[in-house]
Structure formats: structure tokens, C-alpha cells
């Protein structure tokens, strides 16, 4: 199990969480009409073999969306913050 230290609930197994994918992509503003910006946001991924900023939601817990920094080669988690306060 990955162990994710939820800032609200403490360290928990990752299967209490819902994965939300890459958190480094920037979502266009809701009224952005540029298809290219939305294409990049929805589809294009750096997919690094290394440090990855990603979303996880503590669904069986506080239900907060979190931003987790994790190494995709060894699953070492280096930071966890609330998504609300950690916009890139």
C-alpha cells in the first residue's frame, strides 16, 4: 500500500483514496474558449519517471482533494497538501 499522510486524517492506506491524476497540468479558466488549452489540459501528460504531482481524494475520510508529490519509480511520497491551498 502507498501510505498517504492526509493532512486532515493522518497516515492512511492509499485504497482509502480516489486517484485524480496529474496535478501539474493547469486547468483553463471555466470561460476559456481555446480548444488547444483544453486539449492540453485533458490529454497531454508529462508522465514522468520520477517526481509526480498528483491529485488524490480522501473519499473514505475527510473527502478533501489533496496534492501528493510521489516518485513514480519507487512510490516514495515526499509531500501531501490540501489541493485548495496548493495551486501550482
Amino acid at each position: 500500500m502507498l501510505r498517504i499522510e492526509c493532512p486532515c486524517c493522518g497516515p492512511r492506506d492509499h485504497d482509502e483514496f480516489r486517484y485524480g491524476g496529474d496535478a501539474s497540468v493547469s486547468r483553463p479558466t471555466h470561460d476559456d474558449p481555446d480548444p488547444e488549452a483544453w486539449y492540453a489540459y485533458v490529454y497531454v501528460r508529462k508522465n514522468p519517471a520520477g517526481l509526480h504531482r498528483e491529485f488524490w481524494q480522501h473519499v473514505i475520510g475527510c473527502r478533501q482533494w489533496l496534492v501528493v508529490e510521489r516518485d513514480t519509480r519507487n512510490h516514495v511520497v515526499s509531500s501531501v497538501t490540501f489541493a485548495r491551498t496548493s495551486r501550482a
Binding site: M1, L2, H52, N74, H75
Partner: peptide, 13 residues
């Protein structure tokens, strides 16, 4: 397993 991974191993869950 459901999260980005280059580690060729999975988890017990």
C-alpha cells in the same frame, strides 16, 4: 493498480 507508476511491482490491495 490505478496510479501512475514505473515500478514494475504492484500492491497488496
Amino acid at each position: 493498480d490505478g496510479y501512475n507508476s514505473y515500478a514494475q511491482r504492484g500492491n497488496l490491495g
